[in-house]
Simulated scan of single mutants.
Amino acid sequence: MKQEDIIKKLNWFYSLEHNQVDLYTTQSKNTTDPYIKKTFARISTIEQQHVNVIADKIKELGGRPTLLGNVMGSLSGRILGKLTGKIDIVSLLKLNIKLEEKAMKDYKNFIARVKDDSDLYELLWSNSIDEDLHAGWFVKKIKEIEKRETNK
Results as ranks from 00 to 15, higher is better:
Leu95Cys: 01
Leu23Ser: 08
Lys8Pro: 04
Val139Ser: 02
Glu4Pro: 05
Thr25Trp: 05
Thr150Trp: 10
Asp119Trp: 00
Lys141Cys: 05
Ala41Phe: 13
Leu61Asn: 04
Val90Met: 07
Thr31Phe: 04
Leu99Arg: 13
Asp132Gly: 08
Thr39Ala: 06
Glu144Phe: 02
Lys37Phe: 06
Lys59Cys: 02
Leu83Phe: 12
Thr45Asn: 10
His18Gly: 01
Tyr24Phe: 15
Asn96Leu: 07
Lys152Gln: 12
Arg148Met: 09
Asp56His: 06
Ser126Ala: 03
Asn127Tyr: 01
Thr31Leu: 06
Ile54Ser: 01
Ile111Arg: 02
Leu23Tyr: 05
His18Glu: 08
Tyr14Cys: 07
Pro34Asn: 03
Leu120Asn: 03
Arg78Leu: 12
Lys57Ser: 02
Asp5Val: 02
Leu67His: 03
Asp56Pro: 04
Ile129Asp: 04
Met1Arg: 09
Ser126Met: 06
Ser91Tyr: 02
Gln3His: 01
Lys8Asp: 09
Met72Lys: 10
Asp56Cys: 00
Lys57Cys: 05
Ile46Val: 13
Thr32Met: 13
Gly73Thr: 08
Met72Thr: 14
Phe40Arg: 03
Thr32Cys: 06
Glu149Arg: 14
Lys57Asn: 04
Leu99Gly: 14
Ser126Asn: 13
Ser126His: 06
Asn109Leu: 10
Gly81Ile: 08
Lys108Arg: 15
Lys82Val: 04
Val53Gln: 11
Gly81Val: 11
Ile6Trp: 01
Gly69Ile: 13
Ile87Gln: 03
Asp5Ala: 09
Gly69Gln: 07
Asp22His: 15
Arg78Ile: 15
Asn151Ala: 14
Lys102Asp: 00
Trp137Pro: 05
Glu4Ile: 08
His134Cys: 04
Ile36Tyr: 00
Gln27Gly: 05
Lys105Asn: 12
Leu93Val: 09
Asp132Cys: 06
Leu92Trp: 01
Gly81Gln: 10
Phe110Ile: 14
Gly81Lys: 11
Glu47Thr: 00
Lys59Pro: 05
Asp33Asn: 14
Thr84Arg: 05
Ile79Phe: 13
Glu144Lys: 12
His134Leu: 08
Lys152Gly: 15
Leu10Ala: 11
Ile87Phe: 02
Thr84Lys: 04
Ser15Arg: 11
Ala41Ile: 02
Glu47Lys: 03
Leu68Asn: 10
Ile89Val: 15
Leu61Trp: 01
Asp33Ser: 02
Gly73Ile: 08
Asn96Asp: 15
Val139Glu: 14
Asn151Gln: 14
Ile129Ser: 03
Asn70Ser: 11
Ile142Arg: 01
Ile87Glu: 01
Asn11Ser: 11
Ile89Cys: 02
Ser128Ala: 15
Thr150Phe: 13
Lys115Gln: 14
Glu146Ile: 11
Phe110Ser: 08
Val139Thr: 09
Thr66Asn: 12
Lys140Leu: 11
Ala55Met: 06
Gly63Tyr: 11
Lys105Tyr: 11
Glu17Ala: 10
Gly63Glu: 08
Tyr14Asn: 10
Leu23Ala: 10
Val139Asp: 06
Gly69Phe: 04
Arg148Ala: 13
Ser91Ala: 09
Asp56Trp: 00
Lys141Glu: 15
Thr45Met: 09
Val139Lys: 11
Ser15Met: 14
Glu47Phe: 00
